[in-house]
């Protein structure tokens, strides 16, 4: 999955799930859009669907420090690469 494809999916999720339209890629989501830890947990579920695999507790914990869309994209790319390398194979129920 390309970064552009991930970006368009994330922008769609932000609009549909969190009522945040066209966020800046480097906006501090907490400060600018009141995106909080509950949203982050909901986003992680969407990321699991996007990747087709469950996230580990450690991967989820790392995500709680993310602040911007660009960081989300980096995070998902990192997860996709690690899964392509065969580190995690589980699919979500």
């Amino acid at each position: 999955m390309t970064r552009d494809k991930i970006k368009s999916e994330i922008i769609r999720i932000f609009s549909e799930q969190f009522e945040i339209d066209n966020p800046g890629l480097d906006d501090d989501l907490r400060q600018v859009h009141e995106f909080d830890s509950i949203d982050a947990i909901e986003l992680l579920r969407e990321i699991e669907i996007l990747l087709g695999s469950e996230l580990t507790r450690a991967e989820k914990k790392n995500a709680m420090e993310i602040r911007t869309i660009n960081q989300i994209l980096d995070y998902i790319e990192g997860l996709a690469q690690s899964r392509a390398g065969g580190e995690t194979k589980t699919r979500p129920a």
Binding site: S37, I38, I41, K60, K61, M64, E65
Partner: peptide, 16 residues
């Protein structure tokens, strides 16, 4: 109420 640092694991577990 916030989930920085060690409390992030508590928040994740609670929400799950």
């Amino acid at each position: 109420s916030a989930s920085e640092g060690r409390l992030s694991a508590v928040m994740i577990e609670n929400m799950e």
